[in-house]
Design a binder for these strands. Structure first.
Lengths: 223, 223, 223, 223
DNA sequence: GATGAATGAGGATTCATTCAT
DNA sequence: TATGAATGAATCCTCATTCAT
């Protein structure tokens, strides 16, 4: 009988690369990552309510027994999916952290879809379900708080440099931008047609203008 | 074990109406509204994924058969719930339309919870599920488009009057505010503790400041 | 009220095999055959319209879940029943093929009940339902065509040997005999009392006389 | 409360014409005939297993209450459908009874579809279900016995006139022809494509040849 | 370590029937 | 006379979970 598989994964497991350190065979983490990928895929394509362990197993090309072997139960699987998504989001934010270009960061923040088209659908499903799965809500709360802190300190830096308006505290600005990101996360899967490239650019310009210092305001164009 | 089906049920169903076999007064719409209320309540408290017709029936104090009598299937029920929620939101917006105070409108818009504490949870569940129920996504799209138009024209009026910044087109501003509202709709059920009255006021102030004309910017306080 | 699902079931399921949770010996085909037998039995005794997966499960001494585990859905189960019936009919025809006695063959063909008293009722139910289950009609068509071919070639041989009238093409004779078999298949379950042994013998004699060469006609006696 | 509606209809009600004698309004029999037609139509198109009172009511353009008002229960409705089908079959046979042309009679007997394309499907469904509905089997038995008698006496007449072979008793011949008719009744709905006009003619010729006196045998052609 | 057979509760939906109006 | 609201059991099917192998 395996050791209790309830131990959460804390490594970066969201980039799709299979992590292989030490023993290269029978890698438990690799198998878990594989299942997480399959689970995220099912959630994105079928919706949380229609996600079943059976479908995840089929997508991963294994048996139902394997899923419950690697994850104690459904809740644990879903929670792990959430963790891995946040990992991948964190990795995305970390990229190019060298030059803190506020526009580039916002772009990644608000339209976090570049490399992973399933990111938005998955996150919207997880967010919606968080309220009803306490262990799961905890993950969201913890990770979101961290994100808000990162974003707030980024904005504070911007305010100190004069590139961000300082008539609103950085933490409130971070909350507003976070809410905008969440709002788009929800709407994008429903109305993808409304989010053309040019519309996204215009929305981004508008967001930058909103948080720019008053003197730096510049006219943006609608779609 | 089922009860003898020939014995008429005479218990109180909760609304004070006595439930009987046979043909009661045919107030079809009232009964539908009652069921919609029950459905919304279940969705809010249990989440969409855990909502079943059986639970809705129990909450409404009737049998499952009664639910499927009034609504052809689950999809129809849920879609009707969505419509009714939008109706109540529209009614809320219409109230006090006489003086278009931008702050009051935003308050109602972004924190649409005053009279209906279940509004946010229900909407967040419906939004999340819209993608996977086409008939349902159609309702969302149609209603949201209307809302955005209303908000955009409101903001355009504000721009003409000088109370709203005009360096961003009204439709883009409306989109941003809509996204903020959706974002909070999602987060509020997950982290209600974060949305204290004072924090909500601060967020509202910040939002007003964001869309105010540059010259009218005024310092807001964080939480 | 359901029993505690953690307690393993240990009762005898009727066939002598002890039913247990977990992974038993994986004799998939044997279990399927067992379920098919149960299904045929239910169809024969209750009629297709009153056949449910639950009844099949009860007859087989297992749970409904087990049935849907071995057969994706009802249609697949019923189709498999049809195939297995045809298999058994084919096997019956093949028996004693050594001496092609036309009367013995007809007897087996028209009164295919010798070893399996449920054969007629099952076939009549399946036949009647075939029209409304395409996947199922396909099985019937394919198998019936083969049977007609076998019968026609048999009759052609008889014609060549002079034991079968040759003023009617063999394929038409085969169709007529096939129709007679189907007709009796339908009527036997409804009026079993009419099919006494002597009446069956008389019908068989009459059928043989019908297809005998004119010169070989001999007087048969009624019931 | 209406009088007990269990009294069976015994008039000719199968030609589709609405019977109106005496009081022309509120004609109970007319309404029943209308419902019977709807029921037969549903049985033919959906199959017995998929026939529900609701569907019958929809097809007839009335409420479910109306159906249970005119027929005590489903069994009574179905039994009445059977009676009406036999009525229409009897009427068909009675037509042109003046000159007892054996071939014309057989044609009507075996291919009773000329004026009512739903006749075969309905009869095949009713036949298949008869075994499991005693009240219903009784109707079948009684009516079939009458038909066999009619056919047997017809054949006996033919034998006396020398137009039918007399080496097989008339009652056995009638049974065989009846079985052929039933067999085709079953197969026609499943494989309509096999029953082309020319094939039907060939089958008919073959049947006539089968029962013709040995000396009168003539070569028929296959399809 | 990993499988997959089996479970049984619960899912949505359909149904024949009842009966107050 | 005729309606249609309401019932509750039964339908097929899916599910997370268990566990002998």
């Amino acid at each position: 009988m395996p050791e209790n598989p309830t131990r959460p994964v804390s490594g970066d497991s969201g980039t799709g690369a299979v992590v292989r350190r030490g023993r290269p065979v029978g890698d438990r983490e690799a198998k878990r990552a594989e299942l997480l990928k399959a689970a995220a895929s099912v959630i994105a394509q079928e919706g949380y309510a229609q996600t079943s362990l059976r479908k995840v197993a089929q997508r991963a090309g294994c048996t139902t027994g394997a899923v419950t072997y690697y994850f104690a139960n459904k809740e644990e699987l879903v929670t792990a999916v959430a963790e891995s998504r946040f990992d991948s989001f964190d990795a995305m934010l970390a990229t190019g952290r060298t030059r803190p270009d506020i526009r580039a960061i916002l772009e990644r923040w608000l339209f976090r879809t570049a490399d992973d088209p399933e990111f938005w659908p998955v996150m919207s499903q997880l967010l919606a379900h968080a309220r009803y799965e306490p262990a799961f809500a905890a993950v969201i709360e913890r990770r979101y708080a961290r994100h808000r802190d990162v974003l707030a300190s980024l904005l504070a830096t911007g305010q100190a440099q004069g590139s961000v308006r300082d008539d609103i505290p950085a933490d409130l600005l971070a909350d507003q931008l976070g809410a905008i990101g969440d709002g788009w996360t929800m709407m994008f899967p429903i109305e993808p047609g409304r989010f053309t490239a040019s519309r996204v650019q215009a929305l981004l310009d508008a967001a930058v203008t909103l948080i720019a210092p008053p003197s730096g305001a510049h006219r943006t164009s609608g779609s």
